[in-house]
């Protein structure tokens, strides 16, 4: 078996509004559209993902919250209807997905070796969270690539910020080793919004885009600053300012997926491809790609740059 590799990582946020706006057959509610810039961004990401032809998609979602440990989906097939508890009017999605259990078990074992509490989720009646499903649908609506779903232990919320991010760094490194060991050609999906300040009420017509704009100007400016740095490949600088960005813009990346993905990729100093940016109920969302296959020279594995 040849050594596995990470082909690419995507920042792939999960507002259910994007699925609602697209009107796929799996989702019950119907819309008149909306959030087109972000949906077109995902169209671009879908094309590049298709070109990569990965064996597996790994997704870390902040909406599968586990208090004790980092959990991995561990049932070969999961299906059901996922209803978003926050936006049930927009997202009632019938899903069927295949899990790469062998890789999930390898990730779990490697995470344990890193000293993290890690568990397999073996209950066949488990309902997959809407964050995982939205990100996977927006990236690959065909559902023809097996997945590894990873929970958010929410350690950055429970621990001091630095301790929590350090845990996610270890989870990322463990994920990389598991991918290499199992010979998979893998794509990572960090299911995170940037600035997470949002409106407290929904318009009567949720897809009325005349009502959609950044909720918070300072948060918007932070998003633009971070995206600019990521587009220039200034990974070290991004991670140096990350704690401030999280605090000042209430960024959802605090939940860990972004750090997990970059740790697994070895914190590459390569330009990220911005497929698009847009707001959803005022939150900032960027669809971005780091294609490692196009930058083989710069792929040494590096440690996490920190503010210190």
């Amino acid at each position: 078996m040849s050594k596995g590799e990470i082909l690419a990582g995507y920042l792939a946020p999960h507002p259910p509004h994007l699925v609602y706006g697209e009107n796929p057959p799996q989702n019950e509610p119907r819309s008149e559209g909306g959030w087109e810039q972000l949906r077109w961004a995902y169209e671009r990401a879908r094309k590049t993902l298709d070109d990569l032809k990965p064996d597996v998609l790994l997704v870390h979602s902040p909406h599968w919250i586990t208090q004790v440990g980092h959990h991995f989906l561990g049932v070969p097939q999961l299906s059901g209807k996922s209803v978003d508890p926050i936006f049930p009017n927009l997202f009632r999605y019938s899903f069927e997905l295949d899990v790469d259990v062998e890789l999930a078990e390898a990730c779990c074992a490697e995470a344990s070796k890193e000293g993290l509490v890690a568990k397999m989720m073996r209950n066949p009646k488990f309902r997959v969270d809407y964050g995982t499903i939205t990100t996977l649908h927006m990236m690959r609506p065909q559902w023809d690539i097996p997945v590894v779903g990873i929970s958010a232990n929410n350690s950055p919320y429970y621990l001091q910020m630095e301790e929590g991010l350090e845990e996610m760094d270890r989870l990322g490194k463990a994920t990389r080793r598991a991918i290499e060991r199992t010979g998979r050609r893998a794509v990572l999906l960090a299911s995170n919004t940037l600035c997470h300040y949002h409106f407290s009420a929904e318009p009567k017509i949720p897809e009325d885009m005349s009502r959609e704009h950044p909720q918070n100007y300072e948060g918007y400016k932070w998003d633009m600053r971070i995206i600019e740095m990521l587009r220039r490949g200034e990974t070290d600088e991004v991670f140096r300012v990350l704690p401030r960005f999280i605090e000042e813009s209430f960024a959802e990346i605090k939940s860990g997926a972004f750090t997990w993905m970059f740790a697994a990729m070895g914190y590459p100093r390569i330009p990220g491809e911005l497929h698009g940016y847009g707001t959803v109920i005022g939150t900032g969302n960027a669809v971005m790609e780091w294609n490692l296959a196009n930058h083989p020279v710069q792929l040494e594995v590096r440690d996490r740059p920190t503010a210190a």
């Binding site: 599968w64 959990h71 926050i86 989720m121 073996r122 009420a201």
Partner: peptide, 24 residues
């Protein structure tokens, strides 16, 4: 809930739930 105050209005709720942390 995040937007608005939500109240359950479905007349009959029946099913099986698996806790996201204590699924085992």
């Amino acid at each position: 809930a995040v937007l608005d105050e939500l109240w359950q209005t479905r007349p009959h709720l029946v099913g099986e739930h698996v806790d996201e942390n204590w699924h085992e």
